[in-house]
């Protein structure tokens, strides 16, 4: 599904990713862990197509297609979703309206007819209920005045509406208390399926107690320095990152 090869990325002339190789098969959950500044969020953003990163080498293929050549909205339409670490507040644009524009943008790209208002509304109300997002938040401006937990829940809600093939969760656990974390994880787990993959970027092991990964990769100084099964995350929890960072240096 996702095949990253020898990805090198610079920001303002400074190398941030220095040769990433990562392959994610359909249905798999991969966790990307690593200390602050290791390049985790950069990797997430480069896959989603954020501007401001210069890819100097390598490729990111998604179902055989080169993602790096596509605009962010085309990547979304191909089935990539990025849940933001810091969801953006957008005054004056309500959640439902934004999602309708997003979903219809994606449908148009795929050559599907746009959804009508009534059809769409019924669809998203069911989704909101499934992820436990209050109805009252649906018609509020995107993320404005939402608590930290509500913002993250809104990300998961949006993901459930857009039904991506690959979801990248960028530090979705940051700033959440344990109840909110469980709720968000539950929303993610509801969406796990044989055709859908996840890349879970996190600094802490605790999210992985609830979203159980198939593989864990440790990113340090722009490279994947260790990959392993789920147990690697537990080892990191016990030993920290320093032993790997030192080994990589």
């Amino acid at each position: 599904m996702l095949k990253i090869e020898n990805l090198h990325v610079e920001v303002a002339g400074k190398p941030v990713l220095r040769g990433i190789d990562l392959t994610v098969a359909p249905g798999e959950v991969h966790a990307i862990m690593g200390p602050n500044g290791s390049g985790k969020s950069t990797l997430a953003h480069v896959i989603a197509g954020r501007e401001g990163y210069e890819v100097t080498q390598g490729s990111v293929k998604f179902n055989g297609k080169e993602l790096l050549a596509l605009e962010p909205e085309a990547r979304a339409a191909e089935g990539v979703f990025l849940a933001f670490q810091y969801p953006v507040e957008i005054p004056g644009v309500n959640n439902v309206y934004m999602l309708k524009a997003a979903l219809n943008g994606i449908r148009k790209y795929r050559g599907l007819p746009e959804l009508g208002a009534a059809e769409f509304l019924g669809f998203i109300k069911a989704k909101a209920k499934a992820v436990g997002l209050k109805d009252s938040l649906l018609n509020r401006p995107v993320n404005q005045g939402f608590s930290g937990g509500e913002k993250k829940r809104n990300e998961i809600f949006q993901m459930s509406v857009l039904e991506p093939l690959l979801a990248i969760l960028d530090e979705t656990d940051s700033g959440l208390d344990i109840d909110a974390l469980k709720a968000v994880a539950e929303g993610v787990n509801l969406m796990r399926s044989p055709g859908r993959s996840f890349v879970v970027v996190t600094h802490y092991q605790r999210l992985l107690d609830y979203i159980v990964p198939d593989y864990v990769h440790v990113l340090a100084q722009g490279r994947i320095v260790k990959s392993g099964p789920r147990e690697l995350a537990l080892e990191l929890e016990a030993r920290g990152y320093d032993w790997l960072v030192e080994a990589a240096a």
């Binding site: 909205e73 644009v93 934004m98 997003a102």
Partner: peptide, 17 residues
């Protein structure tokens, strides 16, 4: 970027903002 990453086309995202 947030809107475009959700699949909202650039011109629509600009109009929304």
């Amino acid at each position: 970027f947030y809107l475009r990453a959700r699949g909202v086309p650039r011109d629509v995202a600009e109009a929304m903002l």
